[in-house]
Computed example of a mutant assay.
Amino acid sequence: MSTPAVSESEGRYLSAILLVSETAGRPAKTGELADELEVSPASVTERIGTLADRGLVAYERYEGATLTEDGEAVTRELLWKRCLAENLVNDEADADVEAFGHALSEDVAAALKSFIDHPCSGECSAPDAEYSECQSAVRESVSR
């Protein structure tokens, strides 16, 4: 399955929805996302509408937002690429690993994966059940 292309900004919103909804165990509320992303609630509502139109987010007013199956696939791919970038870039380098990870094409990420079976060593930013200790790093990258 080829995942739809999203901008770096859209990726931040998708990542925040995943992080907040997994942490809370329910759909992410607009106010929670606004706090997480350090933007206005109106900006969140507008962006969620755009992402919902693209089939990446399911949104119910007063209930919150969750990722659709396609949205979760896109988000986890973006977080995996960020995680890959974190493992490739020296910590002392003042590199924008989020932008670097986002810029990786699927082909390049797949080629790099042959050298690093799974980049997550327990310190990456992918919020997955088996890597729950990484959520603070995701929260930090989302709020930039």
Rank of each mutant, 00 (worst) to 15 (best):
M1I: 01
P4I: 03
V6G: 00
V6L: 00
S7N: 08
A16D: 06
I17Q: 04
I17W: 03
L18I: 09
E22P: 00
A24D: 14
G25I: 08
R26L: 06
A28S: 12
K29T: 04
G31C: 05
E32T: 04
L33R: 07
A34W: 08
L37F: 05
A42G: 14
S43M: 10
I48C: 08
G49R: 08
G49K: 00
L51S: 07
D53L: 11
D53K: 12
D53P: 04
R54T: 02
G55E: 02
G55S: 08
L56I: 07
E60A: 14
E63M: 10
E63Y: 12
E63P: 02
A65C: 08
G71N: 07
G71T: 10
E72Q: 12
V74H: 01
V74G: 01
E77Y: 07
C83S: 15
C83H: 06
L84R: 13
A85R: 11
E86W: 14
V89A: 12
N90V: 02
E92W: 11
A93F: 15
A93P: 01
D94F: 06
A95G: 05
V97H: 02
V97C: 06
E98R: 12
A99V: 13
G101L: 09
H102N: 03
H102K: 00
L104M: 11
D107K: 15
V108H: 11
V108S: 05
A110Y: 08
A110Q: 11
F115R: 15
P119S: 06
S121P: 01
G122R: 13
E123T: 15
E123A: 13
E123L: 14
C124P: 10
S125V: 03
S125R: 05
A126C: 12
P127E: 10
D128M: 13
E130M: 06
Y131R: 05
A137S: 04
V138R: 11
V138W: 06
R139K: 14
E140S: 13
S141K: 04
S141Y: 08
V142S: 01
